[in-house]
């Protein structure tokens, strides 16, 4: 998914947020759209009301991001992995494989999109007249 921030007076794209882990097909209301344009000031309201459940299973759709970084100071993160390794000694996977695996938890599509939107609002909060063009381009 690509979210382009557009200045309506010049039609210039001022910033692009690329989210390869996400598709507009993940959201029921957008399934028949090629692109969606939303005003920045109503973006969050629109996004939190999206239905991101699989139409057949009625279960939320998930995405597996390449990797997540844990919000911990670096030294603490190293200590945590070290304790994890000590605990996991009886597991068949190596400590590196385990570390790699736990850094890739599945995240709900709705959680991912909301996080991106909140970041966008933070980066352009003074520009409520701006628009956002959302597509899979």
């Amino acid at each position: 998914m690509k979210l382009e921030i557009i200045n309506p007076s010049t039609q210039e794209v001022v910033e692009i947020y690329s989210v390869p882990d996400l598709s507009i097909l993940d959201f029921q209301q957008w399934r028949n759209e090629n692109e969606i344009i939303i005003h920045l000031d109503s973006l969050l309201d629109k996004v939190v009301n999206l239905d991101s459940k699989d139409p057949e299973t009625k279960m939320p759709t998930f995405s597996n991001p390449e990797e997540v970084d844990f919000y911990l100071p670096d030294p603490l993160k190293k200590q945590v992995f070290s304790v994890f390794k000590d605990i996991q000694t009886d597991m068949e996977v190596s400590s590196e494989e385990f570390e790699d695996k736990i850094s890739r938890p599945a995240l709900k599509s709705s959680t991912i999109l909301t996080a991106v939107v909140q970041e966008i609002l933070q980066n352009h909060h003074q520009r409520t007249d701006y628009k956002v063009r959302i597509s899979d381009g």
Binding site: Y17, P65, V68, D69, Y71, L107, T111, I112, E119
Partner: peptide, 20 residues
């Protein structure tokens, strides 16, 4: 509030452990 944040400067996902 969600424990998942998108860091646009580094283009990465951040996840806070509930323990923290």
């Amino acid at each position: 509030m969600s424990s998942v944040r998108y860091d646009s400067y580094n283009k990465r996902w951040l996840l806070t452990p509930v323990h923290y």
